[in-house]
């Protein structure tokens, strides 16, 4: 069971969280302007790296806030946690070293 540091609540057991998959996949600005295959890419295709992964979690049984972190998908080491603000708000993506 992972120990995840919620940016608002601190370290909590994984049981309190919901997983949200890859971070920084924004809802397309103009869905009607996308081809079917571009739309399918948004709907269904996500990165699936063996290694560092920027992903979303929500502290579902706590403060209920969403946030992003960078986790290694083999070692499960968590390298960085960042409160969630979408790319649209101008915040740079965390850099995967």
């Amino acid at each position: 069971m992972l120990l995840i540091a919620c940016p608002w609540c601190g370290e909590r057991e994984e049981l309190e969280f919901h997983y949200g998959g890859q971070a920084h996949v924004g809802y397309p600005a103009n869905p009607e302007g996308l081809t079917d295959s571009e739309w399918a890419e948004y709907l269904f295709v996500r990165d699936n790296p063996k290694g560092l992964f920027a992903e979303r979690w929500s502290h579902a049984a706590g403060c209920r806030r969403w946030f992003n972190l960078i986790r290694h998908t083999v070692t499960h080491q968590i390298l960085a946690v960042q409160s969630n603000r979408p790319v649209a708000a101008g915040q740079p993506k965390p850099v995967i070293p």
């Binding site: 919901h18 949200g20 924004g26 809802y27 979303r56 929500s58 579902a60 209920r64 806030r65 969403w66 969630n84 603000r85 979408p86 708000a89």
Partner: peptide, 14 residues
């Protein structure tokens, strides 16, 4: 409820 929170917080925080 989770669905609403997810869209609000991750897509439309404004």
């Amino acid at each position: 409820l989770d669905w609403l929170e997810e869209w609000l917080q991750t897509e439309w925080p404004e």
